[in-house]
């Protein structure tokens, strides 16, 4: 299609869809109302399950099966990236040359790294208690590690980042979630049922399997994002196409 035709098709479609959506919005319940049938049930259930963070109770207990799917999407995306960004015929690795880093940047990185790591671990560990959890904390942990890339250089990052080990960690996190679910089946209950004692309300070990699944997700997300960024860094810094392959194109 030529540009104007494409634009017209798009505009006609967009205007009609916008009109439909706006029309539908008038039928929505008004903003800030207090009619939340699912929310009320979920919070009641969370308290009954000794899980202070109701959102974690929904994520890792009441709708744990959704979270299994969601964490698998991330797992699949990371695996897909590893497969697609592999080094192929006609590509070779070059050693990156270290670039000079300004002192202030270096100090910023060195100071922030431990802080960020502690925050990450805190957010993961307190998933059953306060906002956050495995997913959020996992990403904080993964990005924290990359402060080293800013503060020192790529080689310093590579030294503390054996990608193979993190790939295994990613898979172990995924497997731990599934195995926890299967363990409940072996214990004679339903898949992903919260069969572990629920503990004392508002303590780190409360919530039963919520704490376990939360850590499994944290591990999977932290390792997965590290592997993901490693593949991107690899492509951006190390792998380059060789001349013959370029000529063939």
């Amino acid at each position: 299609m030529s540009r104007p035709v494409r634009l017209w098709v798009f505009l006609v479609g967009a205007v009609l869809v916008a009109a439909l959506y706006a029309w539908a919005c008038f039928d929505l319940p008004s903003f800030g109302g207090d009619h939340h049938p699912y929310g009320d049930r979920a919070v009641r259930t969370a308290l009954a399950q000794h899980t202070a963070n109701a959102v974690s109770s929904v994520n890792f207990d009441q709708r744990a099966f959704d979270t299994l799917g969601e964490q698998t999407i991330l797992f699949a995306a990371v695996l897909g990236t590893v497969v697609l960004l592999r080094q192929v015929r006609g590509e070779r690795r070059t050693d990156p040359t270290p670039a000079p880093v300004a002192d202030r940047v270096r100090w910023f990185g060195v100071l922030m790294l431990p802080v960020a790591l502690v925050v990450g671990f805190y957010v993961v560990a307190h998933g059953p208690l306060s906002p956050g959890g495995g997913f959020q904390g996992g990403i904080v942990l993964a990005t924290a590690l990359h402060l080293l890339y800013i503060a020192a250089d790529y080689r310093a990052l590579e030294r503390i980042r054996p990608v193979g080990l993190y790939e295994v960690g990613d898979a172990v996190g995924e497997a731990a979630y599934v195995v926890t679910g299967l363990a409940a089946v072996l214990a004679g209950s339903a898949f992903l049922a919260n069969v572990v004692p629920h503990g004392t309300f508002n303590t780190l070990s409360s919530g039963g399997t919520v704490a376990v699944l939360n850590i499994a997700v944290g591990m999977e997300v932290a390792c997965g994002i590290i592997v993901l960024l490693a593949r991107f860094l690899d492509q951006a810094v190390e792998i380059e196409e060789t001349a013959e392959e370029t000529g063939a194109r």
Binding site: A142, I225, L228, F232, L233, A236, E240, A243
Partner: peptide, 18 residues
């Protein structure tokens, strides 16, 4: 994470072959 991935991709694409 997302902006970082975009930056790395741009770097790779701009670097081109060799």
């Amino acid at each position: 994470v997302t902006p970082l991935m975009i930056l790395l991709t741009v770097r790779k694409v701009k670097r081109g072959p060799r």
